[in-house]
Each structure stands twice: as C-alpha cells, then as structure tokens.
C-alpha cells in the first residue's frame, strides 16, 4: 500500500519553526534601514519569494528532462507541481516587489530595475504553461509538450536575465545589490533564515500537492478497478497531469 505524504509532518513542523524564527528576526533583530525605514523589511519576504520562484522554474525544467528521458509520467507530475508552485510564489514576489517599489520610489512599477523587469518577463512566459497544458487533450501528449516547454523556458530564465541586465544600467535598490557578502551581518543572517524558511515552505507545499494528486489518481484507479470504467466518470479536461 502506498502511503501518501510520508515525512510531511516533520517537514511541515520545520517549515513553521523556520518561518516563525525568520519573522521574529525580521521584526525584532534586523536593523532598520537608514534610508527606507520599516518598509525595507519587505525585502526579507520579497527577495526569497522571487529567488525560490526562479529556482522552482529551473527545477521544473530539470524534472522535465527526467520525464523526457525516462518516459515516466511521475516526473511530469513533479515538474508540473514545481512550476505551478513557482508561479504562485512568483505572483507573491511581483506583488511584494511592487509594494516595495511604491514605498521607496513612489511608483508601483519601475522599468529601470532590470531584476524586476526580467522577473516579469519570466512570469509572462511561465504563465502560458497552464494554458498550453489545458489546450492539449491527450494526457500523454500534454505531458510531453509541457516538458518540452518547461525545458525551453527553464533555459530561458538565465539568458533573459543576462539580456535585460545589459539593456539597463544597474540601478537597483541599495539593499538588493548588496545581497551576498556585503550585507551587514545581522541583515545577512535574517535574510538567510528568511530564504531558508521560504524554500522550506515551497518544498512542503510541493510535497503536499504531489501527495494530494497521487492520492486522487490512486482513488480513481481503485474506483475503476472495483466498479468498472463507467463508475469513475469521464476524465474532465485539465491542465494538471492525470
């Protein structure tokens, strides 16, 4: 008997604990930014969301390679969930980025920031992933074409960042360009814990969705086996693997 969501409890607890610690650090430990004040703290949510979303897109592409190599549809399911979750995190990243832009530059959107612009382009591309899947009815072809898309789009992510960054001068918020070694120690620690928390959240949600989807497929298989083909009903059109 397959057990669904094995190890999920431990992962969930670790996620909640890390995010709690991260929030505590953000509000009580990390220093106020000298120029931007309190609003700068959205950085600790915005940047990890965006980084995790981008990694999720690339991971979706890598999982798609595994799908095309093995022909095993479980890799397509994993790739789908990776991209699907990355899209949700990416929307979060865009919204928090927009709020930050409004607070620090007075505009909801700025074209002068190459990271934000590249991120928007990547989001626009991956937003077509679901419509593409939805418009292919045969589940196998859907899986195959979606994997081809995921690989092409995954490779697009770094190339796009290079092109957009070159197109605009590097005019980025003070803090973000400092990402890495030049962050003051306390900010660096807070950022690292926040990034870990968001990454764990992504991993947990990814696992939950996989478990739910696999349970649903198993249920359908059992219904068909026990009650005959008609009992399960026709499979609805769906963008998700089935």
């Amino acid at each position: 008997m397959t057990s669904y969501g094995r190890g999920l409890r431990g992962l969930s607890v670790a996620t909640i604990a890390t995010i709690t610690v991260a929030l505590a650090l953000v509000f009580f430990y990390a220093p106020l930014d000298a120029n931007q004040g309190f609003i700068q703290k959205i950085f600790y949510i915005h940047v990890p969301l965006a980084i995790v979303a981008l990694c999720g897109f690339v991971v979706g592409g890598l999982l798609a390679i595994a799908h095309l190599r093995t022909g095993d549809r479980k890799w397509d399911l994993r790739s789908y969930v990776a991209i699907h979750m990355a899209l949700i995190f990416g929307v979060g990243g865009l919204i928090t980025g927009s709020i930050w832009a409004k607070a620090s530059w007075g505009h909801w959107w700025v074209w002068s920031d190459p990271t934000l612009v590249s991120f928007l382009i990547v989001m626009l591309l991956f937003a077509t992933y679901q419509p593409l899947r939805f418009s292919i009815e045969d589940p196998e072809r859907q899986a195959r074409y979606a994997s081809v898309f995921a690989i092409v789009a995954g490779a697009f992510v770094p190339l796009n960042f290079i092109a957009v960054r070159m197109a605009q001068g590097v005019v980025h918020p003070r803090v973000l360009t400092l990402t890495g070694g030049r962050l003051p120690g306390s900010m660096g620690l807070t950022f690292a814990v926040s990034l870990l928390g968001i990454a764990l959240l992504y991993a947990t949600l990814w696992n939950y969705e996989i478990a739910a989807k696999r349970a649903r497929m198993q249920l359908r298989r059992l219904r068909r086996a026990a009650l005959g083909d008609d009992a399960a009903g026709a499979l609805g059109r769906s963008a998700a693997p089935s």
Partner: peptide, 8 residues
C-alpha cells in the same frame, strides 16, 4: 509563448 520567449 513566442512573444516572451523572443523578448531578449
């Protein structure tokens, strides 16, 4: 699909 892909 083509438009964002061709943006760079």
């Amino acid at each position: 699909i083509g438009l964002p892909l061709l943006l760079p």
